[in-house]
């Protein structure tokens, strides 16, 4: 779906500054959003995953500001008895899903922030603490954050977690795509590197889609015919292949429209060059002028009903 909203312009300009930016910005803004041409991503082939939790451990190690956890805790396989979600202490979790055709060999799936192409969290953030890097990562700047948690309400995957028990400097927590430590330097995220089964492929999103398609074509029995994240909510940086229907491995059923494309047009229509608010101001002003009583007529028109005696 061609989404060519003028996001960058709007993001740069804030309300009302549109005119100041002039033509150069217009030209840049004209680029379709789907056209981060070098958007990086990861293809996760859940059919290969054995549930060793090495990715969780690597994630915990590289993110120095998460609560450190002992090595052994990642060898505890009893966690698979329940379903886990990401939390303020873990950016990624692996869950187990039984295969109805083969009770011996269940499926596993790792989950984390999807690094959406048009992220709800970024559009929602009141101060721009969440930003989309052209290379793909959705980044968070705790210093700007006011802790309103609107990003959490906006994320269609229910990803961002919050440090509810930190009284003074709570942060929104979600996968960083290892941006600072690795992907900004062209290295793969820590989890991708740690995986012994090569479940994950790191690369340009466009190429990952080609790879995914060819895998489905080559092994039609192994996969459901769907690349999750190719179109969901306008496309995501992380892409998934699965042997089970995606609903059965806890992927929400989502439409192809990105969530900001519902709110942003409303926002921008209301503030289009300040015309609607100023018009409303003018109309009210005129009304005030014309309604001004000529003589001192103070009786209300609707007073045919007196109070009951």
């Amino acid at each position: 779906m061609g989404i060519d909203r003028r996001d960058f312009l709007k993001r740069l300009a804030g309300i009302g500054g549109v005119a100041l930016l002039g033509k150069g910005a217009e030209a840049y803004a004209g680029q379709p959003l789907g056209g981060f041409p070098d958007h990086l991503g990861v293809l996760v082939d859940t059919t290969l995953c054995v549930g060793c939790r090495s990715c969780e451990k690597a994630c915990n190690e590289i993110n120095q500001d998460l609560p450190r956890r002992p090595q052994e805790s990642f060898q505890d396989m009893s966690v698979f008895e329940g379903r886990r979600r990401m939390s303020a202490g873990s950016y990624t979790v692996v869950n187990r899903y039984p295969d109805p055709k083969d009770s011996e060999r269940p499926f596993y799936s790792k989950f984390q922030c999807m690094h959406c192409l048009d992220p709800g969290c970024v559009s929602a953030c009141i101060v721009g603490a969440l930003t989309k890097d052209p290379s793909g990562a959705v980044r968070y700047d705790a210093w700007k954050c006011i802790g309103c948690r609107y990003c959490m309400a906006a994320c269609p995957f229910q990803v961002p977690a919050y440090e509810y028990h930190n009284a003074l400097t709570p942060q929104v927590r979600k996968c960083t795509f290892c941006f600072e430590a690795r992907t900004s330097k062209g290295e793969m995220p820590a989890c991708v590197e740690a995986c012994p089964m090569e479940v994950m492929t790191f690369g340009k999103r466009r190429e990952l889609i080609t790879i995914a398609k060819s895998r489905i074509k080559k092994y039609p029995d192994r996969y459901v015919r769907h690349i999750y994240g190719e179109h969901e909510v306008g496309g995501t940086g992380w892409l998934y292949l699965s042997g089970l229907p995606f609903e059965d491995i806890d992927f929400p059923k989502l439409g192809n429209t990105s969530v900001p494309s519902y709110t942003e047009p409303i926002q921008h229509a209301i503030f289009k060059h300040w015309i609607p608010p100023l018009t409303w101001f003018g109309v009210l002003g005129l009304l005030m002028w014309f309604m001004k009583p000529v003589e001192n007529k103070t009786e209300p028109r609707s007073d045919e009903e007196g109070p009951e005696k």
Binding site: D7, K10, R11, A13, G14, I15, G17, V122, S123, A124, C125, I126, V127, G128, K144, C148, Y150, P260, T263, E264, I266, Q267, H268, I270, F271
Partner: peptide
Amino acid sequence: PMMWQGNSVLFE
């Protein structure tokens, strides 16, 4: 102004 985020409903 450096943190204005005109896409955000909450900002408005």
